[in-house]
Design a protein around this nucleic acid. Sequence first.
DNA 1: CTAGGGTTAG
Length: 438
Amino acid sequence: MLNVRALARYYAALVDGGLVPPPHSSLSKPLLGTHPHIPKFPSENTSKKQEVKQIHSLLTTKGLLYNPNTSPKDNSKWKTTFLFNTLIRAYLNFGQHQKTLHLFTLMLAHQTPPNSHTFPFIIKAATHSCPSIGTSLHTQVINRGVLYDPFIQTSLLGMYSYFGDLLNACKVFDEISHPSIVEYNAMLDAYAKNGNMSSAYSLFKSMPKRDVVSWTSVINGFAKNGLFGEAIRLFREMMLHDYVKCCFVTPNKATYVSVLSSCANLDERGALYIGKQIHGYIVRNEVFVTIFIGTALIDFYGKAGCLSNAIRVYNQMVVKKVCTWNAIISSLANNGREEQALDMFKKMKGEGLCPNEVTFIAVLTACARAKLVEIGLELFQSMAGEFGLVPIMEHYGCVVDLLARAGLLGEASEFIRRMPFEPDASVFGALLGACKIH
DNA sequence: CTAGGGTTAG
């Protein structure tokens, strides 16, 4: 007989990339050979995906999911709900949103009652599929009498916010009689994501208590809406607040990332000074430089023109991901080191990493700057051919820039004519800019 | 077993 709790723990370990061996059960042997350590390659992730599928099949064939009547015990009903919840979570965490929603319909079809733990997962899955499913889930939540669960309310709020439906997000929030700080923060983020920073800020001011997430949500909201100066100002206020009132709101990794990104994008000389101060603070407080913080630092120094600092941060990073490489390649390309940027690109591929859309913006920019027309065109071709990436407007803009800068104005306009979609202002801008030079 | 904030892009 399967130990349900142990099995759930095993799922959790699978999902979180943990190292826990499977529990004593009919699944006591690993299904797919060895258990990986920290995931390094995407292929390991797919093998875990496969394991979830295998477990699902096992549960089905043993009649544990769809045949609750065979269990004599009275508490088998909640056990089945529990199993469904964990299985749903496993699929959700692998990004299989359709499969997650499908499992939910199966659950209903087999008279397994969803509980308050079920809905947050399902709502998250619906958030990434379509609004109409989301609305019907809201109805389900009401019908099943779990509307006043704070977890579910927060999930619904986040869902409407994601759909750009700020009105319904507000409605959900207004129906919460005594919102917790988490629900306040979800509402702050909803305003910020939908571009309503004045409402975000006034809600922030009116909150009875604020934690790091509250501060970071508003700081990040300012940053995402292009108000970099405001983001930095609020960050300083937060640090001062901490110092004056002795209520310890210390920045965390998300805060650093947001404020560093603001420093990188602020077109004022003071930004370099503030960014350096933040970097200094990170060093002094021995904050662990995560991939996010490292990438933000590289980008910051790259944009500020301190290429040597960008390279130093890059060299100090032990674990690098594609975005880290993208940031250093862009930094090199934007500071007159185009060949080095292309070398980095080669090195990145040599380490087995797959370039993404952003990588190609960076390398195509490098080629355009250095007038490396042949290489640039080859790279553009390789996007779809070698890496299965579909070029978007920005990539076409880069190629137009590449051709036009090199004086090949005729080729550039011909390229625009053969684009698969209507060129936008940035594409013509690249052409006209080059016309001015030539 | 559940909810809130994060990097790279002429």
